[in-house]
Amino acid sequence: MSDQTDIDARIQTYYGEVFDEHARLTTRSAQGPLEFQRTQEIIRTHVSGGRVLDIGGGAGVHARALADGGFDVALIDPVPRHVEQALSIGVDAHVADARELPFSDASFDAALMLGPLYHLASEHDRVRALREAARVVRPGGVVFAAGLSRYIAFGKATLGRPVPELYPGEWVALAATGTPSPGRFPAGHFHTAEELQAEVTAAGMHVLEVVGVEGPAGALLESLQDAGEQLSDAALTIARASADLPGIRDMSAHLIAVARVPE
Rank of each mutant, 00 (worst) to 15 (best):
I55V: 15
E84L: 15
A98R: 01
V137G: 01
D105M: 11
R138N: 01
D68M: 11
R126N: 14
S88K: 04
G56S: 11
Y118A: 04
L117E: 00
R51P: 06
V61Q: 15
R64N: 05
M113C: 09
F103Q: 08
G115N: 12
R64Y: 00
R99G: 05
H46D: 06
L130N: 04
A134Q: 11
A121S: 15
F108M: 06
A74L: 04
S48Q: 03
V73I: 06
H119R: 08
V127K: 06
G140P: 12
I76V: 15
M113G: 09
V143T: 03
A67G: 15
L117S: 00
S48C: 00
L120Y: 06
G70E: 09
H124L: 13
F144G: 00
G70I: 07
G115H: 02
P78S: 07
H82C: 11
A63G: 11
F71W: 10
A129G: 12
G141T: 03
D77W: 08
G50W: 09
R128S: 14
R51F: 01
S122V: 13
L101Y: 05
L53R: 05
Q85N: 15
A110Q: 04
G70L: 09
G57I: 07
V127Q: 05
A63W: 03
D72L: 14
S48V: 00
R81N: 05
V142F: 05
E84H: 15
G60E: 11
H62V: 07
R135V: 09
A111S: 11
H62Q: 15
A106E: 08
D97Q: 06
P102S: 13
L75E: 02
V143D: 00
A67K: 10
A98I: 00
A110Y: 05
S48M: 00
H82A: 12
G58F: 08
H94R: 12
P78A: 09
E100D: 14
H119E: 03
V79E: 06
V61D: 13
A63F: 07
A121P: 09
A121Q: 07
D72M: 10
V83R: 12
L130H: 10
A96W: 03
A63Q: 05
L114V: 10
V137Q: 02
G69Q: 07
A86V: 08
R138S: 06
H82K: 11
H82Q: 15
G90V: 15
D92C: 09
D92N: 14
D125R: 11
S88I: 12
V136N: 03
R81H: 10
D97F: 07
V83C: 13
V136D: 02
I55E: 00
S104F: 07
H124E: 14
D72C: 10
V136W: 01
S107M: 08
G60M: 12
V95M: 05
A121K: 04
A74I: 00
V61A: 12
A74G: 04
A110E: 01
R81S: 09
A121H: 07
L101K: 11
A129D: 07
D54W: 09
F103R: 10
L87N: 08
L112T: 00
A110W: 02
P102G: 12
I55Q: 01
P80M: 05
L130A: 13
G49L: 12
P139Q: 13
L112Y: 02
V136S: 03
A98Q: 01
V61E: 14
R138K: 14
A98F: 02
